[in-house]
Design a protein around this nucleic acid. Sequence first.
DNA 1: CTGAAAGCGCTAACAA
DNA 2: TTGTTAGCGCTTTCAG
Lengths: 344, 344
Amino acid sequence: MMSKKVTITDVASTAGVSVATVSLVLSGKGRISQATSARVNQAIEQLGFVRNRQASSLRGGESGVIGLIVRDICEPFYAEMTAGLSEMFEAQGKVIFLLQSGATGKGLERCFDTLLTHGVDGIVIAGGIQHVNHSLREKAAAQGVPLICASRSGGSEGVDLVRPDNMQAAKIATEYLIRHGHKQIAYLGGLGSSLTRAERLGGFCATLLQYGLPFRSEWIIECDYHYGHAADAAESLLRRYPKISAIVCHKASVALGAYFGVLRTGNQVAGSSMDNLFQRQVALIGIEDSPELALTEPPLTSVSSSAREIGYAAARRLLLRIGGQNLETQDIIVNASIVERGSA
Amino acid sequence: MMSKKVTITDVASTAGVSVATVSLVLSGKGRISQATSARVNQAIEQLGFVRNRQASSLRGGESGVIGLIVRDICEPFYAEMTAGLSEMFEAQGKVIFLLQSGATGKGLERCFDTLLTHGVDGIVIAGGIQHVNHSLREKAAAQGVPLICASRSGGSEGVDLVRPDNMQAAKIATEYLIRHGHKQIAYLGGLGSSLTRAERLGGFCATLLQYGLPFRSEWIIECDYHYGHAADAAESLLRRYPKISAIVCHKASVALGAYFGVLRTGNQVAGSSMDNLFQRQVALIGIEDSPELALTEPPLTSVSSSAREIGYAAARRLLLRIGGQNLETQDIIVNASIVERGSA
DNA sequence: CTGAAAGCGCTAACAA
DNA sequence: TTGTTAGCGCTTTCAG
């Protein structure tokens, strides 16, 4: 079946050179003559040699492996971020270990140890960053493994943190509506306890005030992420305050719910292809993007720092640290940008 | 900063034993006395020793690493499957390399080589299995690395394939509706070219016939995955054939669209909390589950082989192969089951 | 029950 | 430009 795993030594002998030479052509370091290089490559081809990276990292330097601990890969935000990380690292010839921590700190610690044991060059922690405590950071430092966090909202110290700019996102959304002539704007969704919501709401209010628009607390509605609830909330809001012409939605699922809520009131979502003079148009804009938002008619505009972008930023930062730079820890805030789809 | 990476030798000397002994307590193999074992463990603790798995796999056997190549981690199906794989492997103390192949075969091959070079114990290919060709299989065999595919629908040979039972899922959905008294059942969604759809439709038809119900081709509607389109299709279908009392939806997004389509006709989705004698109730059941389906009111019932379950099955199979069993290649078909939520 | 010693496959000095 | 040689950190016979 499998014929004795071919090693660098085999390659060396069939190419008629020394192992060192083979190693050199493999890593492209020493200046090797075209002739030998070709001979070696041919031998490699012929024997079907595959280099053993475990052995090479054992001796020399980097393993070319990055550890990624994510709370739950099924959450679209983290999936997308993972895609971003993976893209960027693969471009550098690195590969990623994926571990799921689950919600508990215990899980995080276990994952962390596993990664260290496997000799990763660096670790990204995505989500659950509140569990990144001192002992964890110590451990990473002791092993000389750079550590970096990525998250949906703030709250860590002593570690680089990459996160979206919630405030700016809300600001952009609100500004966009105002620029399109809206003056009666509501904010829908999220629960009062959410830090992320606080940040977004801050951006919303600030922007209203900046443009001299009234800030009405009755137009700021809490609701959870269920479509049905968001739809109900949007419907009752619009029925009660018919003047409202636009809604900033706290997150993608809320925007989707609001979409159906608007339809229920007998009005149209702005940008609808079926113009109708008898129907009022309500503009909708979501914060956080999601592929689902493209599935409605009209598709829904949103503002977000793409999770993928956060992945890129985190990857870049980690690469810098792995590069040996001795950097201050810092928060890296990824800008939001608008995805225009027509609903605002 | 980092104090000279502590090795097994350091542990040995501070514990006053030989490296071999330390190795033995680490792997729990040789029968070591309680006393020395304790002494060693204490030294490990004290020094903050972390075992280097690269070194151990170099010498001995397995690396404890599984390679996973997935077409696109952002697709919820694959994300969920990945979660399943990761869970199962982590329970075995194994860790997974995650690579994204993208849609092209070229990507797959590159990923494959990367994994081999990193010395994985086995490889799972999820999606894009049509690119798993002979050369790939050869290469895996040559390295003695077991290979296994997981996918949403059939179509590979010479490799173990784990996949959902589309036909059975449709059968269960249809049967469920029939058992609940429905006789006028439509099938909505999917495009004619889809293999998956063909399988599901097969189950649908077979079940209707089995129960002596009429099979009406006008009640089988193609449409893509956009909510809006599914809603339109459902609406026009119901307006045209008011007798239809239930719809089997080809996939989650179609079910969601259909949900809103039903509402647009002025009818209710079955199970709605607001009973109203003047409204007809239309039952809805989806194939493939998705968290979104829980967000409507009433939440939508669906039938599916959970992607997670497929992940588990794939992991189990791969572990078997890694265990050295010499098995015939086989298709492993994961049963579908119903997630009752109220809409049917 | 424990220690000594020989590698696993590869890289990195140093020689040649 | 290439070969020699000494390890990387760990496991594993084989003796004690």
